[in-house]
Amino acid sequence: MSSMSQLAVVAGAFRYEYRMQIRRVSVWVVLGLLCLLIFGIWSLGGNAELHGYFTSGREGIPVHWVPPDPRSAVLDWVQFLGLFVPLGIGLVLADRLARDKRTRVDELLDTAEGSPSARLTGKFLGSTLATLTPLLIMYFALVAYMVQQTGQFTTIVPLAVAGFAAVLLPAALFVAGFSVTLPLILRVPVYQFLFTGYWFWANLMSPKIGIPSIVGTMLNAAGPWAQEGIFNYNWTFLRLNATPAQGYLSIALLSGLGLAAVLGMGVYLRWQHARR
């Protein structure tokens, strides 16, 4: 089949999946509550950073004024979202293809043209971007608030866009790649349990706990490499001494792995189909 029509298949599956996913009230509810939770955490420090604040002056250290730092306020927002939003997105997306299987939409689609990989890719991109839509809205709502409070449009908005693209988007693609495909071989609740455990173990477990983990590796999907390497931001519990190149590499790696999971599942499905 020509690459042009493969692209049409991807686009068709994308449109269908995007529309299906964006209509679901529960997606909006989950992302809304998630952003609210993260906003709560951010507001504990971020608002002070935005406006500047006096230190508490404990133990003989004189009280002093910390000037406003909108840059940090934005990157804090990105960091906290990066810690939890991919988890939420991965869990919400876990039933997408499994549901198709249950409702037999897949049989309908199986007879349609196009390779399984092309269709899977379209579905993956469509459902992921649809799930990111409510996030984008709420993300930029807070960014707009920060601009309104400080008036520093040129500092805040380009940084916010870059932060979204460098941290949240690759993380979402990474988790979505696995969440869309693995439930085809695992039961959805089992996958969701394993994924929740994995997310904590691989991204959030401080090395201080002493359990071996991959938090310090490039597979950390919560964004420390991009945050440190590209934005020169001190991430919460890790010091990686990342270079900008490593930052970009982590973006490519995470997005690539997500896509690879999808394509790999496409190959597997075709093999399985051929065996039938």
């Binding site: 679901r24 009230v25 529960s26 997606v27 509810v29 989950v30 509550l33 998630l34 939770l37 955490i41 810690l83 939890f84 988890l87 939420g88 869990l91 919400v92 997306l93 876990a94 039933d95 959805v188 609740p189 969701q192 994924f195 929740t196 997310w199 904590f200 959030l204």
Partner: peptide
């Protein structure tokens, strides 16, 4: 309430991990 199992588990899972990470808070 959500009529959606995946979404319900997403909220539960996030709350669970959140409490684990921010246990001090």
């Amino acid at each position: 309430l959500l009529r959606n199992r995946a979404a319900a588990i997403a909220l539960l899972g996030v709350a669970w991990v959140f409490e684990l990470v921010f246990h001090g808070l």
